[in-house]
């Protein structure tokens, strides 16, 4: 089975907004993600993770290298590559239910069928009872769950997540990670998660791609073979295998952070 998501020799430059200088964001990056695998991309700030995600999502054009999903070159945004953004980006003027069902609405699914399917995902992310609420009535964590449900409900081939939990507090973050884990188990969606949080990458990922600092290159790939149903924070905190892997990733990332901390 060929991998679902293939990146080959991807390099990317762009001119900086303020200084006009050329920024070399990505350097000859190659990685693949097999079907059903949850991959995490982790690295210091500025290592090009978000650039990579935008390219994969089709929101940023690229010129050097190949990016393919199911063997087809990525050319622009598409529901095949669903994205959960850091700022959740759910429409403030739609209710929870209408936001989650938005992808299906665009795809033209008729109302009743859409309602049923939407409800499945509302329940999946534990938002039952909040169908008719507006985003401004929800907490940050709940809004992110809506974003997650929306992306999943549209049934993408690959799910991309850009630091989805960066904007929530630590407690909520841990809860959301465990929920995401549970959802990954249930949906078995091929996922690529961008994060700068090493714990998060190790907790969620089957495979962790560690990036160097700018220009971003693939430094190392760390596999984590702990089965999904065993991934609970309370247990893993003391699990030697987890701690070892996490430390390995942490060391790799630390090497890339400059000693003066100005990355």
């Amino acid at each position: 089975m060929p991998p679902k998501l293939v990146v080959q020799g991807l390099s990317h430059h762009y001119p900086d907004e303020y200084t006009g200088e050329d920024v070399h964001a990505l350097d000859n990056v190659s990685l693949d993600v097999e079907e059903g695998v949850f991959a995490a991309v982790v690295g210091p700030s500025g290592c090009g993770k978000t650039t990579l995600l935008n390219i994969l999502a089709g929101l940023l054009p690229y010129h050097k290298g190949h990016v393919k999903v199911d063997g087809v070159d990525v050319k622009g945004p598409s529901p095949d590559r669903g994205v959960v953004f850091q700022e959740h980006a759910i429409l403030p003027w739609r209710t929870v239910a209408r936001n989650i069902g938005h992808g299906l609405e665009i795809q033209g699914m008729p109302g009743p069928e859409r309602s049923t399917r939407t409800q499945e995902f509302i329940d999946l992310v534990n938002l039952t009872g909040f169908e008719d609420r507006y985003p401004h009535e929800l907490s940050g964590g709940m809004k992110q769950r809506v974003a997650l449900a929306r992306t999943l409900c549209a049934n993408p081939v690959v799910m991309l997540m850009d630091e989805p939990f960066a904007a929530v507090d630590a407690q909520t973050r841990i809860t959301l990670q465990e929920e995401l884990n549970r959802i990954a188990m249930a949906t078995k969606k091929t996922t690529l998660l961008i994060t700068h949080n090493v714990d998060e990458a190790a907790f969620l990922g089957d495979k962790c791609f560690v990036f160097t600092r700018r220009p971003g290159k693939l430094k190392a790939t760390v596999s984590i073979d702990i089965p999904r149903d065993k991934r609970i924070w309370q247990d893993l905190l003391h699990d030697p295998e987890f701690v070892a892997k996490r430390d390995e990733i942490l060391t790799l990332v630390r090497e890339e952070v400059s000693p003066h901390g100005d990355d």
Binding site: E21, D22, D27, T212, P215, K217, K219, E255, E256
Partner: peptide
């Protein structure tokens, strides 16, 4: 530590 090869293009006038 890995060092990235110097890839900066010729400096353009900013």
């Amino acid at each position: 530590a890995t060092t990235s090869p110097s890839l900066s293009p010729r400096p353009r006038p900013v």
